[in-house]
Amino acid sequence: MSDDQTKKEIEQYINRLRKKLPESFETEDLLDDLRIHIIEALAEKQVKCPTKDVKILLIEVIENLGTPEEIAEEFGQVKISEPKSEKRPFQGHSLIIRLLAAIIVVVLASWIVSIVTEGAVDFLFAVVVLMIFVLAEWSIRAWQMGEYQRIDSETKDKRYSYRRSE
């Protein structure tokens, strides 16, 4: 079996496993670890049994590694046993401080812009434009946080339903 064929077989196994796991950076990290493990175990077997067909050795390595279902189950067990993070309470003070800081920065920036441009850019106009940017940035960040929490909760649900279906 050629090196390319070996790599292809390894990737096929990794892809089968990827389908059983939630999409996340952690999953990709886990898959990287497993890929390296396969390469190391195969290299060791090749040293020990140099005459044996690589394909057979790779099958042995993958058998020792476990089925994608077994690994996904362990991954699910580990995740389910993790304590749930507590929800953060409403941080009203922090929000007010951030709002005040944003207003101060916007007013200062607008004042500097109107001075530097010698009145070509109106102070009030600069304030309005910068405030629009601030609000847009806040909206995008809030949307991203919402999306992140939705994806996180969906992957937790998927893991839970996977465990329940067994």
């Binding site: 886990l30 670890d33 493990h37 175990a41 476990g66 362990e74």
Partner: peptide, 9 residues
């Protein structure tokens, strides 16, 4: 099963 070690790690 060797692969099950990595979620633990």
């Amino acid at each position: 099963k060797e692969g099950t070690l990595y979620p633990i790690l």
